[in-house]
Design a binder for these strands. Sequence first.
RNA 1: GGCCCGUUCGUCUAGUGGCCUAGGACACCGCCCUCUCAAGGCGGAGAUCAGCGGUUCGAAUCCGCUACGGGCUACCA
Length: 478
Amino acid sequence: MPVRVRFAPSPTGALHPGSARTVLFNYLYARKNAGSFILRIEDTDQSRYDPTSLESILSGIRWLGLGWDEGPDIGGDFGPYFQSDRLDLYHEMVQRLIDAGDAYPCFCTPQRLEELREAQRKAGLPTRYDRHCIDLTDAEVKTRVEAGEIPVIRMKVPEGKTVVHDLVRGDSTFDNSSQDDQVLLKSDGFPTYHLASVVDDHEMRISHVIRGDEWLASSPKHVILYGMFGWDPPIFVHLPVVLGPDKTKLSKRHGAASVLEFREMGYLPEAMVNFLAFLGWSPGTGEEHFSLEQLVAAFELEKIQDSPAVFDQAKLDSVNGLHIRALPVDEFAARLAPYVPELSRQLLAVAAPLIQERIQRLTEAPALLNFLVHRPEELPPEIVPKKQDLASTVAVLQDLRHLFETAQVDESLEPTLRELAETRGWKAGELFMTLRVALTGSPVTPPLLPSAKLLGRTECLVRLDHAIGGLIRGNSSQ
RNA sequence: GGCCCGUUCGUCUAGUGGCCUAGGACACCGCCCUCUCAAGGCGGAGAUCAGCGGUUCGAAUCCGCUACGGGCUACCA
């Protein structure tokens, strides 16, 4: 049987990091087994529908580089891929259940249901539908419908026990008495998740249902439904939850509501994928730096963790640094471009190698490179070394100024600078720092001489003059 | 309340009865390298494997109970 998996988001918001991991695992399993990855849109809740979220979800998945084989935008042999376009199918299936006596219409109002639950809660009982409408005759139903009442259709959960087989959890046994007579078809004619996902997973020949842990508790309903239809259930794989640092389920409260926000924060999609893969999975080999292709090769459902994982951004930072350093320099420069819009492509091409192993996030680049396009305004105190005074600093800067007038401004200058420090009685490090601050306005920069080279002799002279002038003025005003 | 699921260093994890006086990674600390910051190298600290009781010659690994955490308990997914 071919492997066919799906990610089935409801368009009610962006693609959360936790959902992104679900997408990833589906994708990896499909690719690993030469199967198909299907995207299906579960737009059955009209009240929560958010028209902007579909595009946001799709671009989130695309950003991560996880392409799908069938879906709303590209179609496929098992479409349509919007559940709202499949209503006829659900109605037909529900009728089948009604005819077989496995489902029944229910006219109970939301108010009655709420009162019922309230009473059950008060009595310390499980809250469940009391099957008030289960014995309505066809005639009664007909009369009430003709009178304008619109029923929902509920599944009639049989007696007994239901075992859910899960590749990660093993078998979980549920007593059917713990299952509610779930609504299958709502009064607006739309199916609930339970009906729609079962019908579609079957119709779309889904072989493995890989989804979040929160579905495990309703899985027995799904298994029962498969049984009622006479279908074989797919293999279930329930993924452990992704938690925030406070150990509660990861959500917008923890920072990012969308994976796309991580692009804004300077993360590489391949790093995000690598990091996400290790949230609840590990190849067991100790290796942790993986490309998407390598993940595909190594991925096994059996290695999925059965306990929740905390989303640790410090770890993400580290993984991102790893991937940044692994990029070919020109590719790194290209990725950097949007984050340093002030730098020309040419300048970026020569500047990128200077910071590639110095940053963990692309958003750190401006702080390191802006000196290339902005002259220092104020000079931080580091310009005067702790053990030196203002006068000798000015003298050193003047030496440097003379030197820069004629010398070649690049790495070859280093021995000369060390000599200069020596003759002035400075440590080389002190002189480098003074020069660094004078040229860049910052005590933290890429390597000094290569940076000076990018600035060029003329610009260096201007900045040295400015520094000397600044120090003198600062002195006289004291 | 009920039903399910889970519990190895702060975090991600390795581990499927003897190789575990529990290994790696991130974070942290120290040293080396070094013009700053990084990167890199070396080292350190950090887990009585939630607790208790069983099974066994032997248990992080199997079983039971307890505690704690989580999920579900909608005409939401």
